[in-house]
Design a protein around this nucleic acid. Structure first.
Length: 1128
RNA sequence: GGGCUUGUAGCUCAGGUGGUUAGAGCGCUACACUGAUAAUGUAGAGGUCCGUGGUUCGAGUCCACGCAGGCCCA
C-alpha cells in the first residue's frame, strides 16, 4: 500500500473528515457492539442543563469522561454511555419568567400553572442543538439518540418509586426549616429573591445583651468557685430581642477564650459575675475601670460612668459546653431538656459577646446547631393540633407570650393607625416596639446587661418592602442523618481523584450531615408524590403509576369526593389510560385520593429538589424498576463518573445518598472531580467580562485534538486550568507537528521504497531499533497504568516525551541514513532497512493507539493512514512484549546521549564544526561495566558527533584526575551529627587514601571509617585535552587536525553545498546529477579527488569532473568554488 | 468565619520515602546544524522554591503559625 503524505495539515479539517467517517460507518456503535458479551465498564453521564449554552469548560469536563471510556473500550470492555438532560429547576423557571416578562406573582393569575410549565418544557431544551453539535465536534462519544430526560413521565415514575422506597423505610418526613419569610406577603422567599438589589437595607434595631443565669452543678462548678458562689450570668447579644422568648440554648465557640468578670449590672447596680469572650471585654468595659474600687462604686449615690470590673477566671469555650442556665423569658416550656451551652463553628468574636443566643425557630444556624445537639425548639400546639412557633405567620406573637400577645414583632408590620391605637393602649407618649419593651422588661428584672440602638443591613421583602423574618416553614426531609454511618462507610470504598476531595471535602460534608431538605415551593419540577389529609394525620406515598391509578379508582368509587375533585381524577385517569399522563403540576394537584379511614387526601404542593432528579439517574435513566431490570443490574453501580469539584455536595452527594439508602451500595466506584477552567490570567471566565472562550471557535481554529491535548497535558484535571490559546498553538506545533513530521518522513521513504509491513523480525534489529522498542514498551506500560488509575495528564505527557524526545529527536534523526541510503534507494529493501521501517511503523501505530483516548480524531487519522484498517477505536490496547524490554541498552543509550551532548558542547565552545571529522573522543571509565555499556553504542556516537574513534581511559593510564564527593545519603545514617566534619574529610582526602579505599573497600580517614559506598568517585580535567563533564560523566575531545581529516571535512562541506543547491534548484529527491567543478587550489583538488566516490554517492552524482570554468559560486570559509550542476 | 485546595524561572508546569549544584517546555539572547524545515542542536541570561518559626548533621520536601489566589459552605 502507499502512505498518504501531507503538507500543511489542518487539524480541524482532519477532525471533520474523521467525524464524517465515524458517522457514515457507525464507529461509535461498533465500539460497543464489538464488545458484546465482554465485561462492562459503566459510566454515568451527569446531565447538563440544556437551557444554557456550553462553554469551553464543558470541553474539558467531557474530554475527561471520554478519555476513560475510550481507554476501557480499548481494554476490551463494553462501555455503554447514555446521555442525559437535567430539565427541572429554578434556572429554567427564571429564564421563562425573563422571556415572558413575568414574575412568580403572575403564576396562577395572568398565566396558568399549566401554561407556565408548558413554556418551561419548551425552553429547557432550547440549546440542545448547540450541545449536540459541541459533543460531536469535540469528539465526545455519548449516546445522544436515547438520552434520559428528567421531565419525562417514565423518569418521574422512577423517581417516585425511589421516594416511595425511602418513605417505606421511614426516611421521609415532614418537618420545618428556617427560611426567609415575609409575613406581610405571607410567603417564603428564595435566596435568589433575597439577592435582588435593594433587598438589604440599613435599619436601626434595638440590640440587647441579655444575662442568662447559670445553674450551679458539676459542669459549672468552676465558675461558681471563682465567684465565691455568687450568681453567675452568661452574656449573649442579639439584634432581635423578640426571639428571646424562644431561646433554648447558648452557643459558644470551641476555641474562643472566655473570662468570668466581676462587676455591676449597669441598670440595677446589682453586683454580678458575667461570662463573655475575652476579646470582647473591651466593648463592654472601660479599661481604666479594671480592678478599680468596687466598694466606692457600690457606696456612691450617683454611680460613675465607668463601672469597676475584675477578671476572676479564664476558660475555653469547650469548658463551657453543657453549662445549664435558667430560662430567660419563661412563657412556654420546651418539650425536652434545653437551656444549656453548646458549641458551634459559626461563633465569632467580631461583635456581641462571643456567646450566641440560640432560638431554633428563628435562625438557620440556630436550627442546625440545636438539632445537632438535641436541643428542642420552643413550640406550641395550635388549634389544629399542629406544632407552631411563638410567632405566627402574620408575624405576631401567639397568645401564650402573654405580655406581648398578638403583637407584631416588627414595628414595620403596623400601619400608622394601628401604631397609634397601640400607643393609646400602652398609655405612652410614643409607641414602643416589642423589642424596646422587652429591653425595658429585662432591664428591670436584672436580665439585661446592655441595651443600645444598632445600625445594620437587614433583608427586606422585594414585594412589600417590609423586613423579612427567618421563620420555620414546612418542608419535607429525607432523614439522611439516620444513615450517616452507612454513607461514611460506603464512601471509604470509593476511589476519589484527587483523594482529598473524597476524604476532605466530601468526607467532612458527610461527617456534618444534616437531613436533606427535599421541598421546593415551585412549579416546574418533579412533584412530591405524597397525598395527605388536611390535619396531616393520614397520608399516602405513591410509588408507581399503577398504584396511583388504583388509588384514584378507589377514591372515585367511594362517592365521597366533590364534583370538582371527581372531575380532576377522571381527567387524570383518562390521560393515564392513554399513556399521556403529565406528572407535573397542575395535573397531579387535581388528583384527590382517599385515606384508609375514608378521608380525602390532597397532594402536598411541594416539588422536590432537582438534585434528587439527577441523583436518581442510575435508576431513572432506565425507567427502573418498571423496565430494563437486566440492563440496570449490569450497569450498576458505575465504574466511573466525573464532574466538577463544585458537584461534591451536589450530584456526587445525591447519587451517593440515594444509592446508599435504597441499595446499600455506592453509586460509583471511581470518581474524578475536575477543577475550573479559568482565563489565562487565572480569572474566572464570564460572558459579562468578555473573557469567556467560545468553544466552537476554538475547536474550529485549532481542532479538537490539539485543544483536548492541551487541556489534558497542561494541568492535572483536578487543578484549575489557566486556559491560554497560545498553549494550544504550542501543543500543536511541538507535539502534533513533530508527530506529523515523523509520519511524513516515514510515508515519504516508505512510498519510495514500496515498503510492505510484515512484522518485526527481532534478529534484524539494530541496537537503535531495540532501544526505541524498549522505550516503546515502557511507554505502553506507563500509559496503561496512568489511564487505569485515572491519571490522563501523566499518560499524555509520557506520550509527548516519547514522540518528541525519543522517537523523533533521537531514533529518527540517527536513523535517517538507513531510510535514505542512496546506495539502496528505490525499491531495494535490505533486511536492515526493512527492520528500520518495521520499527518506526510499529512505534507510530502504537502511539496512534495510545494517544487515541485523548486525541480521538488524530489517533484515528494516524492509525488509518498507517494501517488502512477500519478504526483505532475498535482495536485492543497494546501489550508489553517483555522480550523487547532492554534496560541495559537504555542505560547505554543514555550514556551515548550524554557523551554526544558533551562533544557537541565542546565543539561549540571551540568552534569545531560537526562537519569536520575529528580523530577521537576519550572517555575515562573507572568501571569495566561502563566501558562495555558504551561499546554497544560506539557507532552511534561516532556518526552522531563525527569522530573516527571512541577510546577509553582507565585508572592505569595515569592521566586521570580523580575527585571524591561525599555520598550524603549513605553517610547520613552512619555519622549523623558529625556529617560536616566527615564531608570535609572526604573532600580533602589524599589520593593515597582514595587508593586505599578503592583497593581495601574502606579506610580510616581522620578517625572516620569510610567505605567505598560512602563516596562517589568521578573524574575531571584531563590535561592536554578539551574536556567537558556533567552529572558524573566526563569526556575529552582530541582536536588534532591532520591534513587527512581536513580534506574529509572539505569533502563534507562540499557535499553540504551541493545538497543545498539541489534543494534550492528544486531537484527531486531521486534525481541524479552531473557536477562540473572549476579548477581550484591544491587543497580543494586533493580533497575532492580523494573523496570523489563518497561525494558522488552522497549527492547522487553520476559524474564529478574538473572543468575550466563554471558559473555557480559555492561559498566556503577559506576559498570559494564554482560549479555547474545539472540533472541527468 | 469553616472545610478543601494551590503557591517552584517572565509564562505553563515536573520535582517517590528529607541528601547539600532545584529541572523541562515556551519566551528572550547568541551561535550552529539540517534533503524531517510551521523543525532541530549548543551555549547564555533568568529562582529570597509565598513568608516566619521549628524538627534535623542536612528542608523545595516534614511540623506549626501566617500571607495570597481558588472552590464549596456559612
Amino acid at each position: 500500500m502507499s502512505f498518504k503524505e501531507y503538507k500543511n495539515l489542518d487539524y480541524a479539517a482532519l477532525a471533520d473528515e474523521i467525524l464524517d467517517f465515524w458517522n457514515a460507518n457507525n464507529i461509535f456503535e461498533k465500539s460497543i457492539s464489538t464488545r458484546e458479551g465482554q465485561p462492562t465498564f459503566t459510566f454515568f453521564e451527569g446531565p447538563p442543563s440544556a437551557n444554557g449554552t456550553p462553554g469551553i469548560h464543558h470541553v474539558m469536563a467531557r474530554a475527561i469522561k471520554d478519555i476513560f471510556c475510550r481507554y476501557q473500550t480499548l481494554k476490551g470492555k463494553q462501555v455503554k454511555r447514555k446521555g442525559g438532560w437535567d430539565t427541572h429547576g429554578l434556572p429554567v423557571e427564571l429564564q421563562v419568567e425573563k422571556e415572558l416578562g413575568i414574575t412568580k406573582e403572575d403564576i396562577g393569575k395572568s398565566i396558568s400553572v399549566e401554561e407556565y410549565n408548558k413554556k418551561c418544557r419548551e425552553t429547557v431544551m432550547k440549546f440542545t442543538d448547540q450541545w449536540n453539535s459541541l459533543t460531536e465536534k469535540m469528539g465526545y462519544w455519548v449516546d445522544l439518540e436515547n438520552p434520559y430526560v428528567t421531565y419525562q413521565a417514565n423518569y418521574i415514575e422512577s423517581v417516585w418509586n425511589l421516594l416511595k422506597r425511602l418513605y417505606d423505610q421511614g426516611l421521609l418526613y415532614k418537618g420545618y426549616t428556617i427560611q426567609p419569610y415575609s409575613p406581610a406577603a405571607g410567603t417564603g422567599l428564595s435566596s435568589h429573591e433575597l439577592n435582588q438589589p435593594g433587598c438589604y437595607r440599613d435599619v436601626k434595631d434595638t440590640s440587647l445583651t441579655a444575662q442568662f443565669k447559670a445553674i450551679k452543678n458539676a459542669k459549672s462548678e468552676f465558675l461558681f468557685k471563682a465567684s465565691g458562689d455568687a450568681p453567675v450570668y452568661l452574656l449573649a447579644w442579639t439584634t432581635t430581642p423578640w426571639t428571646l422568648p424562644s431561646n433554648t440554648a447558648l452557643t459558644a465557640g470551641k476555641n474562643i477564650t472566655y473570662v468570668l468578670v466581676k462587676t455591676f449590672n449597669p441598670y440595677t447596680y446589682v453586683p454580678v459575675y458575667v461570662v463573655l469572650a475575652k476579646d470582647l471585654v473591651k466593648n463592654y468595659f472601660q479599661a481604666a475601670a479594671e480592678n478599680s474600687d468596687f466598694a466606692a462604686y457600690e457606696a456612691a449615690e450617683k454611680k460613675p460612668q465607668a463601672i469597676p470590673y475584675e477578671i476572676v477566671a479564664t476558660c475555653k469555650g469547650s469548658d463551657l459546653e453543657g453549662v445549664e442556665y435558667e430560662q430567660l423569658m419563661p412563657y412556654v416550656q420546651p418539650s425536652a431538656p434545653a437551656f444549656r451551652v453548646i458549641l458551634g463553628d459559626f461563633v465569632t468574636t467580631e461583635d456581641g459577646t462571643g456567646m450566641v443566643h440560640t432560638a431554633p425557630t428563628f435562625g438557620a444556624d440556630d436550627f442546625r446547631v440545636a438539632a445537632q445537639n438535641n436541643i428542642p425548639a420552643l413550640l406550641i400546639t395550635d388549634e389544629n393540633g399542629k406544632e407552631v412557633p411563638l410567632v405566627n405567620r402574620q408575624g405576631r406573637f401567639v397568645a401564650q407570650v402573654t405580655d406581648y400577645a398578638l403583637e407584631p414583632v416588627k414595628e414595620a408590620y403596623l400601619t400608622d393607625e394601628e401604631k397609634e391605637a397601640e400607643r393609646v393602649k400602652q398609655g405612652r407618649d410614643k409607641y414602643l416596639s416589642v423589642d424596646e419593651r422587652i429591653a425595658i422588661q429585662l432591664k428591670t428584672e436584672n436580665k439585661a446587661f446592655n441595651v443600645q440602638k444598632f445600625d445594620h443591613p437587614y433583608p427586606h421583602c422585594w414585594r412589600t418592602d417590609k423586613p423579612v423574618l427567618y421563620y420555620p416553614l414546612d418542608s419535607w426531609f429525607i432523614k439522611t442523618t439516620a444513615v450517616k454511618d452507612k454513607l461514611i462507610a460506603l464512601n471509604k470504598t470509593i476511589q476519589w481523584k484527587p483523594e482529598s476531595t473524597g476524604t476532605g471535602r466530601f468526607g467532612n460534608w458527610l461527617e456534618n450531615l444534616v437531613d436533606w431538605n427535599l421541598s421546593r415551593s415551585r412549579y416546574w419540577g418533579t412533584p412530591l408524590p405524597i397525598w395527605r389529609t388536611e390535619d396531616g394525620s393520614e397520608e399516602i406515598c405513591i410509588g408507581s403509576l399503577e398504584q396511583l391509578k388504583t388509588e384514584i379508582e378507589k377514591a372515585q368509587a367511594s362517592g365521597t369526593l366533590t364534583d370538582v375533585q371527581t372531575k380532576g381524577n377522571a381527567a387524570f385517569l383518562k390521560a393515564l389510560a392513554a399513556g399521556e399522563a403529565d406528572l407535573h403540576r397542575p395535573f397531579v394537584d387535581e388528583v384527590f385520593l382517599l385515606s384508609a379511614t375514608g378521608n380525602v387526601l390532597t397532594r402536598e404542593l411541594d416539588l422536590i429538589d432537582v438534585w434528587f432528579d439527577s441523583g436518581a439517574m442510575p435508576f431513572a435513566q432506565w425507567h427502573y424498576p418498571f423496565e430494563n431490570q437486566d440492563v440496570f443490574k449490569q450497569s450498576y453501580p458505575a465504574d466511573f463518573i466525573s464532574e466538577g469539584v463544585d458537584q461534591t455536595r451536589g450530584w456526587f452527594f445525591t447519587l451517593h445518598a440515594i444509592s446508599s439508602m435504597v441499595e446499600d451500595s455506592v453509586a460509583f466506584k471511581n470518581v474524578v472531580s475536575t477543577g475550573l477552567v479559568l482565563d489565562k490570567n487565572g480569572n474566572k471566565m464570564s460572558k459579562r467580562l468578555g473573557n469567556a472562550i467560545d468553544p466552537f471557535e476554538t475547536l474550529k481554529a485549532y481542532g479538537a485534538d490539539p485543544t483536548r491535548w492541551y487541556m489534558i497535558t497542561n494541568a492535572q484535571p483536578w487543578d484549575n486550568l489557566k486556559f491560554d490559546l497560545a498553549g494550544i498553538t504550542e501543543v500543536r506545533n511541538k507535539f502534533f507537528g513533530t508527530l506529523t513530521n515523523t509520519y511524513n518522513f516515514f510515508a515519504l521513504y516508505a512510498n519510495l521504497d514500496g515498503f510492505e509491513q510484515k512484522g518485526i523480525k527481532e534478529e534484524d534489529l539494530t541496537e537503535l531499533d531495540r532501544w526505541i522498542l524498549s522505550k516503546l514498551m515502557n511507554l505502553i506500560a506507563e500509559v496503561d497504568e496512568a489511564f487505569e488509575t485515572y491519571e490522563p495528564t501523566k499518560a499524555g505527557r509520557a506520550i509527548q516525551d516519547f514522540v518528541c524526545d525519543h522517537l523523533s529527536n533521537w531514533y529518527v534523526r540517527l536513523s535517517r541514513r538507513r531510510f535514505w541510503n542512496p546506495e539502496t534507494a528505490n525499491q531495494v529493501i535490505t533486511a536492515d532497512k526493512q527492520a528500520a521501517y518495521e520499527t518506526l511503523y510499529h512505534c507510530l501505530e502504537t502511539v496512534a493507539q495510545l494517544m487515541s483516548p485523548i486525541a480521538p480524531f488524530y489517533g484515528e487519522w494516524l492509525y488509518k493512514n498507517l494501517t488502512g484498517k477500519e478504526s483505532v477505536h475498535l482495536t485492543h490496547f497494546a501489550k508489553v512484549n517483555p522480550s523487547l524490554q532492554n534496560p541495559a541498552l537504555e542505560t547505554s543509550m543514555e550514556l551515548a546521549q550524554g557523551i554526544c551532548s558533551l562533544v557537541h558542547s565542546i565543539r561549540k565552545v571551540h568552534r569545531l564544526k560537526v562537519r569536520q571529522p575529528l580523530a577521537q573522543v576519550l572517555v575515562p571509565v573507572l568501571q569495566e561495566s561502563v566501558r562495555d555499556q558504551i561499546r554497544r553504542v560506539e557507532d552511534l556516537i561516532k556518526s552522531e558527533v563525527n569522530v573516527k574513534e571512541v577510546n577509553y581511559l582507565n585508572d592505569a593510564s595515569g592521566v586521570l584526575n580523580k575527585k571524591v564527593k561525599p555520598n550524603f545519603k549513605a553517610l547520613g545514617p552512619k555519622f549523623g551529627k558529625d556529617m560536616k566534619v566527615v564531608a570535609e574529610a572526604i573532600t580533602g582526602m589524599s589520593s593515597e587514601d582514595l587508593a586505599l579505599i578503592e583497593s581495601a573497600g574502606s579506610a580510616k580517614i581522620q578517625g572516620f571509617e569510610i567505605a567505598l559506598a560512602d563516596i562517589e568517585i568521578l573524574t575531571e580535567d584531563m590535561p592536554g585535552y578539551l574536556t567537558a563533564s556533567e552529572g558524573g560523566l566526563t569526556i575529552a575531545l582530541d582536536n588534532t587536525l591532520t591534513p587527512e581529516l581536513v580534506r574529509e571535512g572539505n569533502a563534507r562541506e562540499f557535499v553540504n553545498r551541493i545538497q543545498n543547491l539541489r534543494k534550492d534548484s528544486g531537484f527531486d529527491v531521486t534525481d541524479k546529477i552531473y557536477i562540473q567543478v572549476q579548477r581550484s587550489d591544491e587543497e580543494w583538488t586533493a580533497s575532492l579527488n580523494e573523496f570523489k566516490a563518497y561525494i558522488s554517492q552522497e549527492v547522487q552524482a553520476l559524474s564529478l569532473e574538473w572543468v575550466d570554468s563554471a558559473s555557480t559560486e559555492l561559498t566556503f570559509e577559506e576559498s570559494n568554488l564554482f560549479v555547474n550542476v545539472t540533472v541527468a
